[in-house]
């Protein structure tokens, strides 16, 4: 059994088949790209995998465990973390607090321990601060740790979102258009960063992206979605030469 196994998941909204029989196999540490024209159902696949929607049909296994039909919170506890197409940070909280929310379920103490400042509070907070600082340092955000996250420049906000997702020590990381709105330099940095995350954490990553340079640069395999259906899947270089894919998405 593969590390990630998605078998024929489907969902319809009214008469519209948003995702139809999507399947995917990923080994641990594999970086898979998901591409396709606008409205093809890429983000819907993410929403299915993170429990925002429940699939009408199909199954989803991660590391041998059945994830099908679980809700968002439970799926996060099971090790699925994601970033969003339109950045969703906790804007009125500091950068380090954003990461500490990501650590919420790894370092626990009760509300009472927090209110009455029991020793457990100080011990856990120290651990959290250290872990969060470590993550922020990896993403070169440590100098900004006390800045409100909404005051960060765009590129840093994207990085912070990934840092927050990694804070929950996920097994499976879903990145939704991480390069959207970035200039070529920032995209090049982002590519390095995603590769680094994969190598450093041995992370299994599924990535939605429109920037073909980024996709062909870092993804070993890709899937192409069109009108909710899988058009092609396989080695990146082969799929990108597929005439069907060129016709539907890349253009002549």
């Amino acid at each position: 059994m593969s590390y990630v196994e998605i078998n024929n998941i489907s969902i319809s909204f009214g008469g519209l088949r948003a995702v139809d029989n999507f399947f995917l196999r990923q080994e641990k540490g594999e970086l898979h790209g998901l591409i396709g024209p606008n409205g093809a159902g890429k983000t819907t696949v993410f929403n299915l995998l993170t429990g925002v929607y429940k699939p009408d049909r199909g199954t989803f296994f991660l590391d041998g465990e059945n994830m099908t039909g679980k809700n968002t919170i439970k799926l996060n506890h099971e090790g699925i973390a994601r970033t969003f197409q339109n950045i969703r940070l906790f804007g009125n909280m500091s950068v380090i607090d954003n990461v500490k929310v990501g650590l919420h379920n790894n370092n626990k103490y009760s509300a009472a321990a927090g209110v009455f400042r029991l020793p457990k509070y100080f011990r856990t907070e120290k651990e959290m601060n250290e872990k969060a600082a470590e993550l922020l340092d990896l993403f070169e955000l440590l100098p900004d740790k006390d800045v409100l996250s909404s005051n960060l420049p765009y590129g840093k906000q994207r990085r912070l979102e990934i840092a927050r997702a990694l804070a929950s020590s996920p097994k499976y990381l879903l990145l939704d258009e991480p390069a959207a709105g970035m200039n070529p330099n920032e995209t090049a940095d982002l590519m390095k960063m995603i590769r680094f995350v994969r190598d450093h954490f041995d992370m299994t990553i599924l990535l939605i992206e429109h920037d073909m340079k980024l996709v062909s640069g870092i993804c070993e395999k890709i899937s192409v979605l069109n009108f909710g259906q899988l058009l092609a899947q396989g080695e990146t270089s082969q799929v990108l030469r597929d005439p069907e894919v060129i016709k539907a998405y890349l253009g002549q």
Binding site: A81, G91, V101, R164
Partner: peptide
């Protein structure tokens, strides 16, 4: 600050 992000952070 962000209900959806909070949920997917396991809150």
């Amino acid at each position: 600050d962000n209900r959806i992000a909070a949920e997917s952070s396991g809150i």
